[in-house]
Amino acid sequence: MTDIFRFLAQSMRYPASEWFNEDFWSVLLSLLDELQWQEDKAELIRVKAGAKDFLEDVQIEHTRLFINAIPHVVAAPYASVHCKGDGTLYGMIAEQTKKFYREKGFALAKENDLPDHIVYELEFLAILANDDPDGQKKFLETLFTPWFKIFKSKVLEEAHHPYYRVVMNLIDFFTREEL
């Protein structure tokens, strides 16, 4: 599972040519194969084949969904924007998340970063997946799933590009399976 979570975390980073490449692509497709999500796979392949600049399309979509966009940023990838509180960054759930990392003996390498970014949470799940199934379960139950549900539905509703729909479903699948 560690590898899976790390892969999912990677897929939510800003798409850059250094990693959003053929290798990544083939792993993604084979994962879809294993899951027998053939339709998703076919759609991704179709869209990629038809794209003028596939990377740029995904970058634009990432920016629009997660950074700044018109008509509004669809889903900032932080727990505290969606859950408990007033929709701003570094809310209560972010502090709780940080506390959880600490209790497990971890802290962010970049201390000033917001702890509740989806990439960090997935990376953290990867760490827990190693040897702390209870911790993983609790993290999912109390911190991850409550906001991810909301986040995912916002993304699914607004996504123009199949890539992030597929990624959302993958994250959903693997985080729910572990409950």
Partner: peptide, 24 residues
Amino acid sequence: LYDPDRLKFPLKNVGERGKPVWKQ
């Protein structure tokens, strides 16, 4: 400070002025 709408990264407009399409 913690407004999620704040600008975070440099953006380039690959759409039109007034109807921007942003790319980080």
